[in-house]
């Protein structure tokens, strides 16, 4: 490679590294703003501001969904398997909302540590499978539970 091209290539590489570092530092500094939601551990640790509109995300705890028979009010707990936050919501939930599924809720934490949501979105995970396979897996895991083993969810 002739010297001029070598020089140009060096400049291009410096340009790329420079921009990469600049953008990397900026996004690192802004990471809490880029994060779409707080997870329950952060809320439990008091990292999330009280009475400010924020998003909370995690998995709907199994057996925690309580529906008010008189209205559209729903209360459930969102967990990341370290901590959990009680969430209260009035409105129609997305189709994919279910116990054991991921959600992202938008709202405020009130003084009593309860998250009052005005929007609940379902968060889908990266796993896809045909219904028959899902049924078979569920049967298998129930069989395991009876045998005294507790199934640990891998992720949400």
């Amino acid at each position: 490679m002739n010297p001029i091209r070598k020089k140009r290539l060096t400049i291009v590489l410096f340009l790329l590294v420079g921009i990469g570092v600049a953008v990397g530092l900026t996004t690192y500094a802004l990471r809490q703003n880029i994060n779409l939601f707080y997870d329950p551990s952060q809320i439990a640790a008091g990292e999330a501001p009280v009475d400010v509109r924020i998003r909370a995300g995690g998995m709907v705890e199994e057996g925690s969904v309580v529906r008010d028979p008189e209205s559209l009010k729903v209360v459930f707990r969102v967990t990341d398997f370290n901590a959990s936050v009680p969430v209260e919501y009035v409105g129609i939930l997305p189709d994919l909302f279910a116990e054991g599924q991921g959600v992202v809720a938008m709202g405020k934490i009130n003084g009593r540590g309860r998250f009052v949501a005005d929007q609940v979105l379902a968060k889908h995970d990266e796993n896809y499978m045909p219904p028959e396979v899902a049924d078979a897996l569920e049967k298998a895991s129930k069989g395991q539970n009876k045998a005294g083993e507790t199934a640990q969810p891998e992720s949400y």
Binding site: V12, L15, L16, I19, G20, V23, T27, R31, I34, N35, L36, F37, Y38, D39, G57, V104, L121, K123, H124, D125, E126, N127, Y128
Partner: peptide, 28 residues
């Protein structure tokens, strides 16, 4: 030059779902 400056966005798109909390699911 513009194209090269913009290329930093590509790893950000790719790893956004791992570096930050997002509504979009991680890569299958």
């Amino acid at each position: 030059v513009l194209v090269l400056v913009g290329v930093v966005n590509i790893p950000i798109i790719k790893y956004s779902v791992e570096w930050w909390n997002t509504l979009h699911q991680p890569a299958t």
